[in-house]
Design a protein around this nucleic acid. Structure first.
Lengths: 218, 218, 218, 218
DNA sequence: CAATAAGCGAGACGGTACGTCAAGTCTTATA
DNA sequence: TATAAGACTTGACGTACCGTCTCGCTTATTG
């Protein structure tokens, strides 16, 4: 779906200003505590962009944030906690599925966002995926993030059904996965150089299959 | 395609007995050198299965193999080198695409293999994927491994064309990716519990789309 | 002057109890930090005595002290740092030049101390000298130690002048070096078996030369 | 006495062309064997000058000599063996004590040689001294070298006696050590910056003491 | 507005793993 | 038979980061 990168990068202020997610409810939401949280999450983002997941150590983040190591350990426990907090913050954005007027147009738009998020260098999204293999907390947060995005994208399918482009019983999730999965597969797993045309093609293929009624029934 | 795990796990003997990759030509095919290579690669496999990628350190492999640390560093340089060698060895197997007599049957068979490789716990394949995010050499070797598998699977499409099941100009790679990508996506990236029915469904969907002529033309 | 060995061996407690050198001011004079320093310096002394300089590795010291390797590296950086700290601690002792009532007596007393320090087996002093050839920090600390000893010994010459034994303008340093250098030379550089009589003789020779006015003027 | 450096550096050809010392008698004096010995000893000298004793490993010497590691191990066993061979070769030179016509002049001349050998940077002599603390074989060879030099220098004392400058019963060794030891002491052990004037002064002091009859009798 | 306790800065520590270097041994191949 | 070639064991090096701990200070919240 939408690149995690776009969402997660929405802004430093957002994460810091909003209600601190993931924690039971901060005892002291104002002042130094909140400022430190913002500093640290910014440092995580920056470090992730500059040096990727492998360059993301608690020490480096703490130093970059101008905060002491032990502070990070106290509040986030480990790198996974940092990423989880980052992703939680990203989920609070107002991203909405594109609405171009046609199924193909919408899927192409989504896939281009994904393509951009995956192939921009450095790619925050790719770094987060890498992280999800190392930290259960990061994996969980990333899954939640993606589920949220798929939920929002279901609108695309509903609108196409209403427009009569595709059969009523079309399985939204199957269709959306069919559209985006090849792109992720190619870039993230197969690591083959992938043009934006490939992204468009995958969107078209999925749309055509949907029109042909492939994603209905069992 | 076939799970990397299945191939890579084909057997210790295979890796050791086959032509030792990584060196232009083994000067001393017999003796301690070859025995050490087998010991080490076996240890890599075992360690990967038992403790996953994060439990795979050069030290642990060396100890498990009963070989000295520096020997591992000398020959494989780092963990990525170990994995690359493992995957190279796996590529030397004689895996062939299934031939069930129908496109759908073949794709279902492939997807079941993938499903098994990805969901068996512990999963060697998943560990290798995780590794590919940390080591350029492992990533490269994994890519080569998968490309090899896709090449072998092209036969499935060719046979379907010959049988007249699908249009002549069907793009084999696109079809194969459409069949397998959703499965990888679901399991590896989204980390959603995924039944073998999902694998079957993805195979069916791709086959139906192919029949509908989705994977021809641009 | 006095053998470095005698001074450096003055006692573990001294080093630990005195002001910890190397840090501008110990933040936590009591507790684990100070205890560790004592443990480590004791281990250095013991290891040096038992196995000489070549048996003195950071690892062996750490193990002997029951302290972790990295702790030693963090605080002392390398073997040279350990020796430097040891010598610094030794300089904090209360050694004073002997006062026998005559120049000859004093020089003989000093030379006997040196002889003892150099010929006792194992000799901590010899080990420190060996170390000074491998580590700039150890060399510097040893030089400082010796300079301190020569300063303290200047008293011997002053007293002899006051007693009228030797000319007023006698150069203390030249005289002291003339008395001790042959002993060091013989034992440390020429490595010839050297009796305590040789030490006495060197002292006598220097005293006689001083009386003859050799160490005055240019 | 004379700087070891001067002697040891006398020439590569000498060491290689002369009878191979230190070995029971070379089995194959000509051909590759002899050429290798020359290559290796040259490499030892060069390495010692460029990188000091600590930069002198069997590996580096072998590589520099263009000879295989195992060859060095086989013939010299270790670094100490290399140095011993080097010093043995140096002892074969034709160095003779200076003859200026006066005791003071001779001692000054000797001390200036020593000063030069010790303070030239890099100093082969200092490197050899450092080596003598690490290798028994090197220590033994260095002691032999120095004993040889002291023997040759005894002439200086004999001539002074014949000239009537100093008493008949003057102990040559004691006098020579008194003249040179302070210089070694200052430079090698105390590591204090030492001018050539200091060398001259030590020579003068020893000569005056000898004239005063200090080095006679017990 | 003051007391209090949460949070923070500071820094040592034990610990795992890294990747490197050199020593010295061994076996086989070659000149 | 000496040398070349090269893999191996052993042990030490110095570094990075981990996660934990203790101590003392700041400061936000609350009574």
């Amino acid at each position: 779906m939408s690149g995690a990168g776009a969402g997660a990068g929405a802004g430093a202020g957002a994460g810091a200003g909003a209600a601190p997610p993931g924690r039971e409810r901060a005892r002291r939401p104002g002042g130094r505590t909140a400022r430190n949280r913002a500093l640290v999450l910014d440092a995580v983002r920056a470090q992730l962009l500059e040096h990727g997941y492998d360059g993301l150590s608690v020490d480096s983040v703490a130093e970059r944030a101008g905060v002491h190591r032990t502070t990070v350990y106290r509040r986030w426990r480990d790198v996974g906690g940092l990423l989880a907090d980052l992703l939680d913050a990203a989920r609070d954005d107002d991203w909405a599925a594109p609405d171009t007027g046609s199924l193909t147009g919408d899927l192409v738009a989504v896939n281009r966002e994904v393509h951009e998020a995956l192939t921009s260098t450095p790619s925050l999204t790719t770094a987060l995926i890498a992280a999800s293999f190392r930290s259960a907390r990061a994996a969980s947060a990333l899954r939640d993030f993606w589920e949220d995005r798929y939920r929002r994208c279901a609108l695309i399918v509903e609108r196409a059904v209403l427009r009569g482009e595709i059969p009523e019983r079309t399985d939204a999730r199957r269709l959306l996965v069919a559209a985006t999965a090849p792109l992720y597969h190619q870039v993230v797993l197969l690591r083959v150089p992938t043009s934006v045309q490939f992204a468009d093609q995958a969107a078209h293929d999925a749309a055509r299959a949907a029109v042909a009624g492939v994603f209905t029934g069992p």
